[in-house]
């Protein structure tokens, strides 16, 4: 079970969180012309990569904040966590 450092609450077990997918995906702006390809990339197409991955988690049984977690999908090592509005350098 992963041990995730919630930037708001501190170290918490994985069972307090729910997974939210790739954090690098950006929703196209509202009311903007979007090509089929762009929209498909946003809704469906995801890289299933092995290695460092920036992903979203929500601390549903805690502060209910969405956070960003930098994690290795192969080893499950967690490198850093960020608040939703924090810039990932």
């Amino acid at each position: 079970m992963l041990y995730i450092n919630c930037p708001h609450c501190g170290m918490r077990s994985q069972n307090e969180f729910s997974y939210g997918g790739d954090a690098s995906v950006k929703r196209p702006e509202l009311n903007k012309e979007v090509s089929d390809q762009e929209w498909d990339n946003f809704v469906y197409n995801r890289k299933s990569l092995r290695g460092k991955h920036l992903e979203l988690w929500q601390h549903i049984s805690g502060c209910r904040q969405w956070i960003k977690v930098e994690r290795d999908t192969g080893t499950h090592e967690i490198f850093r966590t960020f608040k939703a509005d924090e810039e990932v350098a």
Partner: peptide, 17 residues
Amino acid sequence: AANVLSHLEYYLQLVWP
């Protein structure tokens, strides 16, 4: 009920803060 709340929180916190 729970999914809708998470859904709203997602957009408020991440997409349209």
